[in-house]
Design a protein around this nucleic acid. Structure first.
Lengths: 111, 111
DNA sequence: TACCTACATATAGACAGCCTACATGTAGAC
DNA sequence: GTCTACATGTAGGCTGTCTATATGTAGGTA
C-alpha cells in the first residue's frame, strides 16, 4: 500500500477503530492490521502523533492505566469525535465516488 | 473535497484523463472538473508540476504546439504510462477495499 | 487607448502529514 | 544474560498539494 494514499484518511481509520470500544495505541495498531486483513501496517511514528493530534482537536480523550505492569494511554471517542466519524464516513463515500468516477475506464459514449 | 485526500491519487487521475486522447494542461484541468461533475477543481500549481514529474518518470511525453496564437504543451501517455495506469487502477481498488472495510460501521458479530 | 475575461504555462515557497530511525522501559521465556 | 513482545514517544526527513504570483496572447467592449 502506497503510504501517501493514506494521507487524509488516517483520522477516519483511527476514529473508526475506536468507535466500538476504547483502545490504547498499540492495540489500535493491531486492530487496524487485523481489520484490514494484514494490509495496514501503520508504524508507531504515525499513530502516536496522530492520536495526540486528534485529542488536541477534541475528537479523542485519553487516560493512563497500568495493566500487567505496563503503562497504557487509553483513547476513547468524545461526542465531537463521534460526530466527526460520521462526517469522515460521508466524506469517504463522496471521495471514492468522485475519484472512482474519473478513474473508471472510459467506455462511455463520447460527447 | 479535502485536498490532502488527493495525495497519492493525483497520478492516477492525470493518467486516466489522458487515456483516450492527448491533452494539454489547461484542458486536463477542465476534463477533471467535467468528469467529476464539478467536484474536482485542481489548481494549476498542482497540475503543471505533476505533469512534469510524470514526464520525468516516463509515464508521459509532451510536445509543444501553437493553436490560435496560444502555445500549448500537449501530453500523451507512453506505453510505460499506460501500464502504470493499469497498476493505479488495481491499487485504487485495493485501497478502497481496505480502507472501506475498516471504515464500515462495525455491525459484524464480534470475535 | 485602456480594461476585462478567457486561455495557457510556469515557479517559489508554505504547509502538513506520514515515514524512518531512534530512545526508553517493563514482563516473561529460555 | 539475552531475546522477544509489549508499550509510548520524539526528531527530522520527505514529498506532494496548495497559495500566490508572474508572464503572455486573443478577443470583446467602451
Amino acid at each position: 500500500m502506497n503510504p501517501d494514499a493514506l494521507r487524509g484518511h488516517m483520522d477516519a481509520l483511527l476514529l473508526s477503530v475506536l468507535e466500538r470500544e476504547p483502545l490504547h495505541g498499540y492495540a489500535i495498531i493491531e486492530a487496524l492490521q487485523e481489520r484490514s486483513g494484514g494490509a495496514l501496517s501503520v508504524p508507531t511514528g504515525t499513530v502516536y502523533p496522530a492520536l495526540r493530534r486528534l485529542e488536541r482537536i477534541g475528537y479523542l480523550a485519553s487516560e493512563w492505566a497500568t495493566v500487567g505492569g505496563r503503562k497504557r494511554r487509553t483513547y476513547r471517542l468524545t461526542d465531537s469525535g463521534r460526530k466527526q466519524l460520521e462526517g469522515e464516513r460521508s466524506a469517504w463515500r463522496e471521495f471514492t465516488s468522485v475519484i472512482g468516477g474519473v478513474l473508471q475506464a472510459d467506455t462511455r459514449a463520447s460527447g
